[in-house]
Design a protein around this nucleic acid. Structure first.
Length: 805
RNA sequence: GCCCGGGUGGCGAAACGGCAGACGCAUGGGACUUAAAAUCCCUUGGGGCGCAAGCCCCGUGAGGGUUCGAAUCCCUCCCCGGGCACCA
């Protein structure tokens, strides 16, 4: 009889259609017995379509979900689209088509691609952040924050292009210039909305160490810790000669006696007050110069120290001496108190500044290594009563001394800033606030949500200096919800990161339009069981999602305060050793590969090319290996059906390999070591072929084990093997622990640490038995060369090391 | 500058401190073919000895260290990728 060849073109559409028809991938969200929420970071639907990096990430997450399903969990694997934001808006501006028209086309294309790779997505719960039914609730969340006092308005700098007369996002500033017109970008101050995330800094930090709440990749928690940037130190008052005082923050109170001058941020409010008349002109000029630099240039630009003396002096509370007060742009208003005590002897930046302006440098610590100015170690000198004390001890001692004198206190600072959620853009959810001349800012009543983003023809920013939304008068003017008089809508939209900070809460409840998340559904499915995504979101997205969850928990909406029980970051895919980019011309277009090889082979290859959490190198010539494997496995299924060899005697070594493989594949899937799981399956197949074995029990279990990687292939083989139900209704094969080990083992025999021979002994043979076997082995004897064995090192079932003199 | 990853055959990569190079790609050779493709079998880290079975030496970015034993642990350094970046 002639066998059917493996034809992915035929079976992949067949199974995709059947999954949709039979709702194979839609768990019963209300009655699931063993819920498992398998989440992956939803994509931004670009015009280019899914790239190979997305495919890699989604496939890896899908493999895990399918594995959990085979282990008997009710897996909910939703997908959606993060479709608002600057990328879409810029692209829309470039091609001159409204994003509201473009985005649905892109989503349609993404949906097609996601179906094509065979993801186990529950399409019944798809969402898009641009859908009014979704952003209604994004706006609702904003209002909850506003009511709870967690959203507030403040003036904050933005990048301003004086030529285009518009606000620029950081991405639109290139080397200090507007990416469109090339004009020098400036800072402008606008009233913007902020979320008080800093209030939660200590909790966001503390949970990172709580394994019961967060099983996360170490690299990700480290990134968050650094971003939160906790530092312990002191605030110290330096009394001004003219009255009042400058408060500084320092992490090094032990260096107080070395503070020979002070520096304020140029925008520090005290500057105007303290500047002497002689210095006024210079100070004003410097302040103007700083303001003209854009936000990025100031931070990243050239680091030559600049600054101006204010003419004022303040008293160092340690030494009692008067020190000059300067302003300089290396001191940032948004950190600490916006002012520092400068200790040039023990801080690299202060040192540079002192050298540049010829300011005094006084050692406060005897350094062991004078080159290492910032060292925390050493003994205090020139420090009055503290001289002779270890620096580590002095940090607390000087702080306590200042506290007693009412001139300072211990404080903890974070580098985390409050979250600016305002965007002066078109393509986002309008912030649901109406400004009324009589009542001030008034929240839009919840029953009036969503505040729909109007479809306007001219969505581009123009030189009028106002948001495109403000030009749309019938939208812009709205009745004040409090007094009914004519008010103006907020024209800022909210940050895309707010959309993505809660989407996982929405998925299980997309079928409810009267609540953001249903209480029972949420209780059943959340927090998320497993979350997989890129480490590029290690800080912003993951931190904002944690924060929003915590706030909603504290308001009583959620029963948990950490959203992602387990998080794993996938690696990066490069092509032929280099990062993919259009300019290099090495971008992999996944559709072409899928068309040529089939989705299953493509998935297998992506999972095989390297460890999932490390990523790997995509090579065109790598796909043939996994494809050959599937072809051979297909033939083995044919053979199993043809010969119907079931229940017969199986060679012992095959039995061992079989059970070892089941154990290893399960373990490797759990730890996301997909590449070695596939290798183990290849080994088992090779063993079967060598022995010409097509035992049905083994073949069937191989099909179940390959199913997470090659779901269409597995379904088709499963059907051909006579099963009517989906292979995903099967159970993950159990293994017998006793059969994963052989009764005899090969022991490596080393002489003086070098492997020289092998001996076969019984499993768990003791040392005496092993030594006896080794001493009889001719090869080992040759190396012993008649010398006495002085010592032996024995590792049961592994090796024996004979040490001779 | 700081913080994370990495550096192993021709290539992608394996390896609880215990036989380095599993698995795959690509080589080279052979079988089957009129032929090619596909398929199947064998070969393949480098160097050396041997007619042969086989044997020896070297080898995981560099240099030190710990250990009976190091790709793996420790120290110093070099290179690559990613992130943060004047955070007091």
């Amino acid at each position: 009889m002639s066998d059917t060849p493996y034809q992915p073109d035929r079976i992949e559409p067949k199974w995709q259609a059947r999954w949709a028809e039979r709702r194979t991938n839609e768990p019963d969200l209300d009655r699931a017995a063993r819920p498992f929420y398998n989440l992956m970071m939803f994509p931004y639907p670009s015009a280019e379509g899914l790239h190979v990096g997305n495919m890699f990430a989604f496939t890896g997450a899908d493999v895990y979900g399918r594995f959990k399903r085979l282990q008997g969990f009710d897996v909910f694997e939703p997908i959606g689209f993060d479709a608002f934001g600057i990328h879409s808006e810029n692209y829309a501006i470039k091609v001159g088509v409204n994003p509201a028209v473009l985005i649905p086309q892109n989503i349609e294309n993404f949906r097609r691609q996601l179906k094509r790779i065979g993801g186990m997505f529950d399409w019944a719960h798809e969402l898009a952040t641009t859908d009014p039914a979704y952003y209604k609730w994004t706006q609702w969340i904003f209002l909850q924050f506003y009511r709870a006092g967690k959203a507030y308005r403040k003036r904050a700098p933005v990048n301003w292009c004086p030529s285009c007369k518009t606000v620029l996002a950081n991405e639109q500033v290139e080397a200090g210039r507007c990416e469109r017109c090339g004009a020098q970008v400036e800072q402008r101050f606008l009233e913007q909305w902020f979320f008080r995330i800093t209030e939660y800094a200590d909790r966001l930090l503390a949970d990172l160490d709580d394994r019961s709440k967060m099983d996360w990749s170490e690299s990700t928690t480290t990134a968050q810790r650094n971003w939160l940037g906790r530092s312990e130190g002191a605030e110290i008052e330096f009394p001004l000669a003219t009255g009042g005082a400058v408060r500084v923050f320092t992490t090094r109170p032990d260096t107080l006696f070395g503070a020979t001058f002070m520096v304020l941020a140029p925008e520090h409010p005290l500057v105007v007050e303290i500047t002497t008349p002689e210095q006024r002109a210079a100070v004003e000029a410097y302040r103007a110069q700083t303001a003209s630099k854009d936000l990025i240039a100031r931070k990243v630009g050239d680091r030559d120290k600049t600054g101006v003396f204010t003419g004022a002096f303040a008293r160092n509370p340690g030494t009692g001496r008067m020190v000059p007060v300067w302003i300089a742009d290396y001191v940032l208003m948004e950190y600490g108190t916006g002012a520092i005590m400068a200790v040039p002897a023990h801080d690299e930046r202060d040192y540079e500044f002192a050298r540049r302006f010829d300011l005094p440098i006084v050692d406060a610590i005897e350094l062991e290594d004078p080159a290492d100015r910032g060292s925390l170690a050493g003994v205090l000198i020139n420090s009055g009563e503290f001289s002779g004390m270890a620096a580590s001890e002095a940090r607390g001692a000087i702080t306590r001394w200042l506290e007693a004198a009412g001139q300072g206190q211990a404080v903890v600072r974070y580098r985390l800033h409050d979250w600016c959620v305002s965007r002066q853009r078109y393509w986002g959810p309008p912030i649901p606030i109406i400004y009324c001349d009589a009542c001030g800012p008034v929240p839009v009543p919840e029953e009036d949500l969503p505040v729909q983003l109007p479809l306007i023809e001219d969505f581009r920013p123009d030189d009028s200096g106002v948001s495109p939304l403000a030009r749309h008068e019938e939208w812009y003017y709205a009745a004040c919800p409090t007094c009914g008089r004519r008010g103006r809508r907020e024209t800022d939209v909210s940050d895309t990161f707010l959309d993505s900070a809660w989407y996982f809460l929405r998925y299980p409840s997309t079928d409810f339009d009267d609540r953001a998340f249903d209480r029972a559904r949420t209780r059943k499915w959340l927090p998320v069981t497993s979350y997989i995504g890129g480490n590029e979101h290690a800080v912003l997205h993951l931190l904002y999602a944690r924060y929003v969850t915590m706030v909603l928990h504290d308001m009583g909406y959620l029963h948990f305060d950490e959203p992602f029980r387990k998080f794993r970051a996938h690696g990066l895919i490069v092509k032929d050793g280099a990062k993919m980019s259009k300019s290099r011309g090495n971008v992999v277009v996944p559709d072409e590969y899928i068309a040529r090889w089939g989705a299953d082979t493509f998935r297998m290859y992506l999972m095989f090319l390297g460890p999932f959490e490390a990523g790997g190198d995509f090579r065109d010539d790598g796909l043939s290996g996994p494809r050959r494997f599937l072809d051979r496995l297909w033939s083995l299924v044919d053979q199993a059906i043809r010969e119907d060899a079931a229940g017969g005697e199986i060679q012992h070594r095959i039995v061992i390999k079989w059970h070892q493989t089941k154990k290893k594949v399960a373990h490797d899937l759990e730890t996301l070591n997909y590449n070695t799981a596939i290798a183990a399956l290849m080994e088992l197949l090779n063993t079967m072929r060598e022995a010409n074995c097509c035992e049905r029990r083994i073949v069937e279990e191989m099909i179940v084990m390959i199913a997470p990687f090659a779901p269409h292939f597995a379904e088709e083989c499963w059907e051909r093997l006579g099963h009517e139900e989906s292979v995903f209704g099967a159970c993950w094969p159990a293994w017998d622990e006793r059969l994963t080990v052989d009764e005899t083992v090969e022991l490596a025999v080393q002489v003086n640490g070098k492997t020289r021979s092998k001996v076969t002994v019984h499993r768990n043979a003791d040392e005496a038995t092993a030594v006896a076997a080794a001493l009889e082995d001719p090869v080992a004897r040759r190396f012993l060369d008649g010398r006495d064995v002085r010592k032996t090192v024995f590792v049961p079932n592994r090796l024996l090391n004979l040490v001779v003199g």
